[in-house]
Design a protein around this nucleic acid. Structure first.
Lengths: 212, 212
DNA sequence: CGGGATGTTGAGGCAAGTCAATCTAAGTGG
DNA sequence: CCACTTAGATTGACTTGCCTCAACATCCCG
């Protein structure tokens, strides 16, 4: 029933508009989900990692997003009809998945607030905070954050421009909050200040994400 | 199992942070869902109407939003544990609900794009478009839209200020796109122009919404 | 016919976008 | 190993759309 799949960085797993009747669980690597609007804007709806779910989950449908491998990627693929059958016979799992979906709705509410009400610096702070959380390593002081995505990806995720993202990051550097080890690696020198800026709402983050 | 409930306009059904172990199906009337951030911003996460679902759907949790009746309101209330049991024994319904949840995720993706990339005029156009859709009456020409919510609600839903919402509406009026019959009733004189502005993506809208 | 809530209009400022010019990093081939 | 190329990132000057603040108009309900 399940098929293993491998992709290289940059490969497209599925494309927006593709008729997709399949869903995936990420085993290894990271995925970027992006959506193009008719007026040519790209929105990064999310970044997924190991354990996360993506693809056509409800009835068969055209994919909302394009899914691209950001790193070497290992996936587990399921045919949706079979998966639906499976869920029919495992109602407990179905309920769990439903909970994951509602968590994602809440996460999107939060993201909407970020997009509509937060300043550029706050958005970037939230983003860095989320990255450091994901890394999981609570390196007491000065955690090192690896930023696997481009400035353009960050901008399209946070509703900013690459220039603004760049400017905010250099301001953070000048303020001594962070230090750079190359443009894709950051050392957080003042986590408290970052959390303060992020306006950290102490809601526990769901351990599993979902993408469409 | 199910209990009927009645509210007057302005009544609070449940409040953000309340421990909520109950979910509701709206029978009659409209509900406004709002979320307050720690920095004092209010975000209207959505407006719900007849047939829509809201409340604590996953595990018991503190409510994310405050739910207020915008009109006289009739609800059907369910205890979550019993509802979960019910779902356990009706996996087909569980799958349907899951589909509703994923529709909501998509809707939130779209809303995020609106909040991050669309101009004030486009946002208001999308909003008016959605209102006219909901009304359902495809009055060939010049549909009449009833706007049950305040400018403040609209602003907090679209990530704008009341002043900007007001300005955009008067601009629409000056351009001959709409006409006012009082501040809460609008006649659309040029639907094509409105759709154009809204950047109408021809995705079929889900018939059922969900709120947390 | 008040008076509070809601909506509109105007003037001015600012955060972030746009446009454009470097700077840097990472290849690539001679 | 080094010039050359190219994509990505940074920085700067300028513009602008929306927010802020403030005044005014209108609606609604006792």
């Amino acid at each position: 029933m399940a098929i293993g799949l491998c992709f290289d960085a940059g490969d497209v797993v599925f494309e927006q508009g593709d008729e997709l009747d399949r869903l995936f669980v990420i085993t290894e690597g990271m995925v970027r989900l992006s959506h193009l609007t008719i007026d040519g804007n790209r929105q990064i709806t999310g970044f997924l990692g190991p354990g996360d779910l993506m693809g056509s989950i409800k009835r068969s449908a055209d994919a909302y997003c394009t899914a691209e491998a950001m790193t070497r990627l290992v996936l587990c693929s399921f045919e949706r009809p079979r998966f639906s059958d499976f869920l029919q016979h495992h109602p407990d799992l179905c309920l769990k998945l439903f909970a994951v979906a509602t968590d994602e709705i809440e996460a999107q509410y939060d993201h909407g607030i970020l997009l509509s009400r937060k300043h550029a610096a706050e958005r970037v702070a939230v983003f860095l905070h989320a990255l450091s959380q994901r890394a999981g390593q609570v390196n007491g002081e000065s955690p090192i954050i690896d930023i696997p995505m481009s400035r353009s990806d960050i901008a399209d995720h946070l509703g900013l421009t690459i220039e603004t993202v760049s400017r905010v990051l250099t301001r953070f550097k000048q303020q001594g909050m962070i230090e750079f080890r190359g443009p894709k690696t950051v050392v957080v020198k003042n986590m408290a200040a970052l959390d303060e800026l992020a306006g950290f709402e102490n809601r526990p983050k769901p351990r599993m994400a979902i993408g469409l």
